[in-house]
């Protein structure tokens, strides 16, 4: 699809570090993910107690989206034209395995509704939508690898058909202690072209700066 859209911001969270537009903004000691996530939350001055109820995948998506959306979607206001298109490899398997553990022993059988609800990968989209009041288009996909061409085309078609004014594309992968979240904002105006090469550079964190 012919594209005249642009990428205006991107954020990467991996290996206990946070990069915004290519610059490292935060790094912690190599601690477990939940500790690292809490440290990011505090460091960026976030205030949203529901964060602590989320599973790890939702925390990862939430933190990245929080950084992408901070200037353009004020919490509490309606932001209806910003679509969310997320994908990953491991779906919700990290939480699925935890939930399965809770029903494995028939003598100690107490399935938790608060864990079960997170056994769907799109719940992280729900969490971000609630936080920023995004009554907007959204979809969650599972791919073996980051689908740069698919992501590009899907974002372009949402913008071309008027289903969205802006699109946040994200790869939010988390399984056990391995995590990697890459998100970028696609808009109709800007300087950095929205094309497959640039998207791949962002994904590999090799685009120098934005």
């Amino acid at each position: 699809m012919e594209s005249s859209n642009y990428i205006s911001k991107y954020c990467i969270i991996e290996e206990h570090s946070v990069f915004v537009n290519g610059r490292k903004q935060f790094a912690s000691e190599p601690v477990p993910f939940t500790e690292f996530a809490k440290a990011v939350y505090k460091d960026f001055g976030m205030d949203y107690p529901k964060f602590f109820k989320m599973d790890s995948l939702s925390k990862l998506a939430f933190l990245t989206a929080e950084i992408i959306l901070e200037d353009i979607a004020k919490p509490g206001e309606e932001n209806n034209n910003i679509a969310l298109v997320f994908a990953n490899r491991s779906s919700s398997l990290d939480t699925d395995a935890k939930y399965q553990d809770s029903i494995q022993d028939k003598k100690d059988y107490f399935p938790s509704p608060a864990v079960f609800v997170y056994t769907l990968p799109n719940i992280c989209i729900g969490e971000v939508s609630i936080r920023h009041q995004l009554k907007s288009e959204s979809a969650f996909f599972v791919f073996d690898e980051f689908p740069s061409e698919f992501m590009k085309n899907y974002a372009d078609v949402l913008l071309a058909t008027g289903k969205a004014e802006k699109v946040v594309c994200g790869w939010t992968e988390l399984y056990r202690e391995k995590y990697r979240s890459v998100m970028y904002l696609v808009e109709k105006q800007g300087k950095t072209e929205h094309n497959k090469e640039i998207i791949n550079q962002i994904y590999t964190n090799s685009l120098w700066t934005l």
Binding site: F110, P111, P113, A114
Partner: peptide, 17 residues
């Protein structure tokens, strides 16, 4: 405390467990 409907379900599990 601002608990919600999922918390209520979790409290039901707590009573049982």
């Amino acid at each position: 405390l601002g608990l919600d409907s999922i918390d209520a379900l979790e409290l039901i599990v707590l009573l049982d467990k």
